[in-house]
């Protein structure tokens, strides 16, 4: 791939990268810096990029997320000792409670937009990242796992927990929304 093609393909992903940068940084200035740094790193490493059939987008996402967490990690450095080595993943489990069984015939998703935005706002960046890749970008678990450089089980845990939190946020206002809910507990398999 020559340089002109690379630049064109990379720039086609600007909106997606900016979306991700905004979701994980939550600040316009930081998001812009993050996107610029991502493009600079991508350009410098362009000769190493190999299209594995998924295009350039996952590769750019990986660089962006890696850049964000590396910078945050460096900014967060401070004194103390921890004994929580390699325990981050083990703390994350998929929620045992299934999604609600609402009567969606009388439910208007348009009316919950702001509630979902607010719930998303409360999530940790790593949850927002997988939620965005899943919801907006339409990626599969395995593709997300490659981008965030985490095991597929971790991705599923984060994604399912994030969705559970969003569902909980909506559940708090079912009466107000006029939703009929099924009160019976789900039967296990």
């Amino acid at each position: 791939m020559d340089r002109a093609d690379f630049e064109r393909l990379a720039l086609e992903q600007l909106d997606a990268l900016h979306r991700m940068a905004m979701q994980i940084s939550r600040r316009h200035d930081e998001a812009a810096d993050l996107v610029q740094e991502t493009y600079l790193r991508a350009l410098k490493a362009a000769h190493r990029f190999e299209d594995q059939g998924q295009g350039i987008r996952p590769w750019l996402f990986r660089i962006l997320i890696n850049t964000f967490y590396t910078k945050r990690k460096r900014d967060n450095r401070g004194p103390t000792s921890v004994a929580e080595f390699f325990t981050e993943e083990s703390r994350e489990t998929t929620p045992a409670e299934p999604p609600p069984a609402w009567d969606l015939a009388c439910f208007d998703w348009e009316h919950v937009d702001e509630r979902i935005k607010a719930a998303v706002e409360d999530l940790k960046p790593e949850y927002r990242a997988v939620l965005l890749l899943w919801g907006v970008e339409g990626l599969k678990y395995r593709e997300i796992a490659e981008i965030v450089d985490s095991p597929i089980g971790t991705v599923m845990s984060r994604l399912h927990r994030a969705r559970k939190l969003l569902a909980d946020a909506l559940n708090d206002c079912t009466e107000e929304l006029g939703v009929r809910t099924t009160r019976t507990n789900p039967t296990d398999l």
Binding site: R19, P99, A101, D103, L104, W109, G135, R163, A167, T182
Partner: peptide
């Protein structure tokens, strides 16, 4: 009745996509 749970998740996905889409850079 648990089919409604699957339908809810699909609706949630669409709603999440809409809520998180910040538009053009």
């Amino acid at each position: 009745q648990d089919q409604a749970r699957i339908d809810f998740e699909r609706g949630l996905r669409d709603a999440t996509a809409k809520a998180m889409n910040t538009g053009a850079a």
